[in-house]
Design a protein around this nucleic acid. Sequence first.
RNA 1: CGGGGUAUGGCGCAGCCCGGCUAGCGCACCUGCUUUGGGAGCAGGGGGUCGCAGGUUCGAAUCCUGCUACCCCGACCA
Length: 492
Amino acid sequence: MAKNFVSREENYSQWYNDLVIKADLAEYSAVRGSMVIKPYGYAIWEMMQAALDKKFKETGHVNAYFPLFIPKSFFSKEAKHVEGFAKECAVVTHYRLKNDENGKGIVVDPDAKLEEELIVRPTSETIIWDTYRKWVQSWRDLPILINQWANVVRWEMRTRLFLRTAEFLWQEGHTAHATKQEAEVEAKKMLGVYTDFAKNFMAMPVIQGVKTENERFAGAIETYCIEALMQDGKALQAGTSHFLGQNFAKAFDVKFLSKENKLEYVWATSWGVSTRLMGALIMTHSDDSGLVLPPKLAPFQVVIIPIYRKEEERLAVIAKGNQIKEELEKLGIRVKHDDRDTQKPGYKFAEWEFKGVPLRIAIGPRDLKNNTVELARRDTLSKSFTPMDGLNDTVVNLLDEIQNNLYNKAIDFRSEHTTEVNNWQEFKEVLENKGGFILAHWDGSSETEDKIKEETKATIRSIPLDYDESEEGKCVYSGKPSKGRVVFAKAY
RNA sequence: CGGGGUAUGGCGCAGCCCGGCUAGCGCACCUGCUUUGGGAGCAGGGGGUCGCAGGUUCGAAUCCUGCUACCCCGACCA
């Protein structure tokens, strides 16, 4: 399984691709740029969904579902929005097939042309705001706090498993508010939810920030984001939350009567994270032995592997394994007891290690005699014999420790790969040789940002929310005055 | 859209340059015996329209023409 597995240093992108495929997370499908998410990969996504969904509910949101297809005309109602997405839309033009008259298979029936073409949603703002118009009349109808779990399609030129596929899964929150302030609070609140999720579930540190105009969502007034740093020194946008102002309310004529009996446009937000988080998770923790999963998101937190020779040993060891499994499950721990008789222990060790199970318990005849188990940690690849007594506590504590250790390792990596840079020469050198986040002064202009991108491929990932205006300086590129440091990096 | 690569049992590949007899190897699979604390060993066995369509030839996985699909690198993007 991990045989012939290329190391990160040898070829990082091959390491990533091989990992996704060999760890059974996903595979290429028959359709270009689309992937099959396999059960093990989907199980991780379900863990993410469950945790996020709970947080959404706790913050007052409810789930709903809006259509996959969007009338083409809806798109043109918000100018910036069309412009942003037009180049990557899949379009439905017909609704019927028929047998080819020359007997060459099946063809699109030209008589079945749609009056108005339909766009396969790349995001749902338009269809949702067209709907919200009907739902909102009074301030009493607000706020609307809705999330949907859905698939979307963006016809990307170049795709990568999980990181950028033509179709992907995500959640998109769409909220409507009576006041600007309330919408702004909402956008930031959800950014906080994402940050918290990244930290406490994914064990992934992120920088909270605001996008520059260049990187802003098409149709937003302000785009907030969380940016994470991957092990190859490139940044990954892990989640976004947009303050949409009244742009969509105006485009779709969504008005309400305020308490003062004045007709006003509704204020909006939208926010989302996608299966891209799978890529982020993989590239934050995994190593040259395969996937490494944080306990909070691992489909199996513990795998039990029995070791035996004779049938009586098998029965005894498996009975013990079942007992341990049952007790751990009572504590809410997700356990896989790999009692397959068709594979040998060594094979199972390698397989589950590659699949990133945080903790492995091996039990053999010797353990039964000594009242011990062999415990192996995935994060440190260390093994130890541990007394069977108190095993439950040991496991609970270790899972906790692994979760923390992963976060700490990730944050150490990020610290080591975050560099303050004060001149252009240094900027280029650090970007070239070290990568990572670069904190540098910027004059605030799109022109400078564009030029830096042209010359180095680095972009401004965000203006950090804790932007320090006390440290004035000079733009690293133009030398013009700057109010504070922003985050540069090459990005996925 | 530009550049590169690939297409041969389920998977990974060799064979192609220089055409030839039954298309081969590893893994996986099936049967049996021995094994089992880091990817088991031996023996036997099953499985392939060589991406598609033409062409050259006595004969094509191999040469020629055209097509298609996918992957990688770039431009575009979450």
